[in-house]
Write a protein that binds this DNA or RNA. Structure first.
Lengths: 281, 281
DNA sequence: CGCAGACTTGACCGCGCTCAATGCGAGTGG
DNA sequence: CCACTCGCATTGAGCGCGGTCAAGTCTGCG
């Protein structure tokens, strides 16, 4: 049985990531985390602390033995920050790295010769961006930050070298890449067979399950992307997305104000996505 | 610049594959190749001869040094034959192997809970099937032979083990898998943005370029799949596919009788696929 | 020869796109 | 503080592409 709730990368996520969000916060005693951060960086300039990362149980470290973890930490560059709209990498430029989202979110898209954009995916914390360009000459897509976003960078040449030495990591890479293929096939299926309502219901459920994995509310979250991106991703017009949202709202299935969304009737959403399948049997 | 001509796996192909087609032919002198084949198999029961395969320059051997080739031959099971409609593997069954097409052709598809089928790809000689299930527990799709088809089988556990030892092979696997992701994204794009004519033109061009790689005619070939499969793959109704074919024929762009197709005006087809892009700039 | 499955063709209609206007919230400057 | 703007989201009216339904034609195969 196939769950349609995974439209994007089932490599998962976890936990509140306050300490990894790249935000400087002020403690009650007036101290901030900035001083610590600077001291940490100075002590070990590029060395990351995957073992202390709240996402470690579902990011790449998940596939690695405790004692091999430092080998991964040797190659990763941690904690780069991108502001909303900034490019993490650009289509057709030479591939250097793939990236793990630490906090925030990323969208990837392909630009055609004519300048048309096609959004190919949304990436949430703990998910890996750039697998579609792994071992390629140039990036197959462009990755942009949807909000203030912090990422960990894995140079592909070093990553390849490491996976050659750590069979479990290699296995994990294969699994994630084939997952990526499957997700893309699921998307293709959604695009070719389903109505606007079914597509949007599927997306909402996908986001919901991905928020749940981060131990955040699965029914109450805010969309990281604009309506425009949703429409583009799902092969719809913006107006259609808007109309479906209000239709769902009138039916009492969801409540939406701007990007804030509340799922009031998850079962109903699941019924919508399976609607087209019912007549099959 | 992105070519839309690659809807399916750019891992390529080559050459007439008469000797690898699994067909027994009779020579002018009355002798056949069967005796030789049997003798060969007896001499080395399961050992394949990748170095003698006409597809070796574009299949997996392409990534391997001459002297390492026997290590690949050790794990491959060569020359299994499937008749039209037979299953190479089934969705949701445990993953054992991925397969390279030697001759014939394969379609892969996902079956939903409701019994709906979605064709996810067509595979021609030299192309690798099953990458979407690499390192998974169970196959993500079902693979069926579209005609009499011979394949080489690579057990995934042994393949993984081998890629850990041969960095170039690992690199090649990554590249093929990311290609697969890219192709699937291209398909998603086609499905979400393009008209029926554009989709079909793109498919014809994709097939054309893949025939050319096998040093066969790029303008004169016969479709391995039924109209039904084309429609399903492209997210269209069979009737629409039919109508577009006749429309193209009336415009003098192609000539089609049943599965036999002749591309009369390749440029016109390319214009069709780029049509939607023109208004972008 | 006759049947079944694949393909083609035609008539009709609905979903979702297009075009256009309006609503709304955030940021900016007077 | 309000007025203004800009980007984003919503809502409405009209229509065209492609799906559906229904015949009819072609083709291969027993």
């Amino acid at each position: 049985m196939i769950e349609i709730t995974e439209l994007r990368l089932s490599r998962n996520v976890d936990a509140p990531d306050r300490q990894s969000s790249g935000v400087i916060w002020i403690n009650a005693d007036g101290s901030s985390n900035m001083a610590q951060a600077i001291r940490l960086q100075q002590a070990s300039p590029l060395k990351a602390a995957c073992n202390q990362c709240s996402l470690s149980n579902l990011c790449l470290p998940l596939a690695i033995e405790e004692n091999d973890l430092d080998r991964l930490e040797d190659i990763v560059q941690q904690g780069k920050i991108y502001n909303r709209g900034e490019h993490i990498f650009d289509q057709s430029t030479p591939v250097r790295s793939c990236f793990a989202v630490k906090s925030g979110s990323i969208k990837t898209s392909i630009i055609t010769e004519g300048g048309e954009e096609q959004v190919t995916g949304f990436f949430m914390p703990g998910e890996l961006v750039g697998l579609d360009s792994m071992s390629s000459e140039t990036y197959a897509c462009t990755a942009r930050a949807l909000e203030r976003t912090s990422v960990c960078e894995f140079p592909v040449d070093k990553l390849e070298e490491l996976t050659g030495k750590l069979p479990e990591l290699q296995h994990h890479m294969y699994r994630m890449m084939s997952q990526e293929i499957q997700n893309s096939h699921q998307l293709a299926m959604l695009l070719s067979k389903n109505t606007a309502e079914e597509r949007i219901a599927a997306l909402l459920l996908s986001l919901s399950s991905r928020f749940r994995r981060r131990r955040m509310s699965a029914t109450n979250f805010s969309l990281p992307m604009a309506r425009n991106d949703i429409a583009n991703f799902l092969g719809l017009a913006v107006e259609t997305v808007s109309r479906v949202f209000t239709r769902f709202q009138n039916q009492g299935i969801i409540r939406a104000r701007g990007r804030e969304v509340e799922l009031l009737d998850v079962d109903a959403l699941q019924v919508v996505t399976r609607d087209f399948a019912r007549q099959g049997q």
